Amino acid sequence: MARDVTSDQVGRVMAHLSGRVYLRPPGGGREWTASAEDLRPISASESLRARVAEANRRAVRGNR
Score class of each variant (00 low, 15 high):
residue 20 R to K: 15
residue 40 R to A: 10
residue 33 T to V: 09
residue 26 P to I: 04
residue 37 E to Q: 08
residue 14 M to A: 11
residue 11 G to I: 15
residue 38 D to E: 13
residue 9 Q to R: 15
residue 18 S to N: 10
residue 42 I to W: 02
residue 42 I to Y: 03
residue 51 R to L: 08
residue 55 A to W: 05
residue 6 T to S: 05
residue 24 R to S: 12
residue 15 A to L: 04
residue 5 V to I: 15
residue 50 A to L: 01
residue 39 L to Y: 06
residue 9 Q to N: 15
residue 38 D to F: 05
residue 48 L to M: 09
residue 11 G to M: 12
residue 6 T to Y: 01
residue 5 V to W: 07
residue 28 G to K: 02
residue 31 E to P: 11
residue 20 R to M: 14
residue 23 L to K: 11
residue 62 G to H: 02
residue 51 R to H: 11
residue 63 N to V: 02
residue 46 E to D: 10
residue 8 D to F: 07
residue 41 P to D: 07
residue 14 M to F: 00
residue 41 P to E: 06
residue 24 R to P: 01
residue 38 D to V: 09
residue 42 I to G: 06
residue 31 E to G: 09
residue 50 A to Y: 01
residue 33 T to G: 07
residue 39 L to S: 07
residue 46 E to T: 04
residue 37 E to T: 07
residue 13 V to S: 05
residue 6 T to I: 00
residue 41 P to R: 07
residue 5 V to H: 10
residue 33 T to M: 09
residue 57 R to T: 00
residue 64 R to M: 04
residue 24 R to F: 01
residue 34 A to N: 11
residue 52 V to W: 05
residue 56 N to P: 00
residue 13 V to A: 11
residue 50 A to P: 04
residue 40 R to V: 12
residue 8 D to K: 13
residue 57 R to G: 00
residue 11 G to A: 12
residue 34 A to T: 12
residue 2 A to M: 12
residue 54 E to L: 02
residue 64 R to D: 10
residue 16 H to A: 12
residue 10 V to K: 06
residue 2 A to H: 09
residue 15 A to V: 01
residue 22 Y to H: 14
residue 21 V to H: 00
residue 52 V to I: 15
residue 26 P to F: 03
residue 1 M to D: 08
residue 50 A to G: 00
residue 43 S to G: 11
residue 4 D to L: 05
residue 1 M to R: 09
residue 45 S to R: 09
residue 32 W to A: 10
residue 20 R to A: 13
residue 41 P to F: 00
residue 11 G to F: 10
residue 18 S to K: 07
residue 51 R to T: 02
residue 52 V to P: 00
residue 3 R to N: 04
residue 43 S to H: 01
residue 55 A to T: 06
residue 17 L to P: 01
residue 26 P to D: 04
residue 50 A to F: 00
residue 13 V to K: 04
residue 43 S to E: 00
residue 61 R to H: 11
residue 64 R to I: 05
residue 62 G to C: 01
residue 34 A to F: 07
residue 3 R to C: 05
residue 24 R to Q: 15
residue 46 E to P: 06
residue 5 V to R: 15
residue 43 S to N: 00
residue 51 R to K: 09
residue 45 S to K: 06
residue 57 R to C: 00
residue 60 V to S: 09
residue 19 G to W: 02
residue 36 A to P: 04
residue 41 P to S: 06
residue 18 S to P: 00
residue 16 H to F: 11
residue 43 S to I: 02
residue 17 L to C: 03
residue 30 R to L: 14
residue 13 V to D: 03
residue 36 A to T: 08
residue 56 N to F: 06
residue 56 N to V: 14
residue 24 R to Y: 01
residue 64 R to K: 11
residue 2 A to L: 07
residue 13 V to L: 13
residue 55 A to S: 14
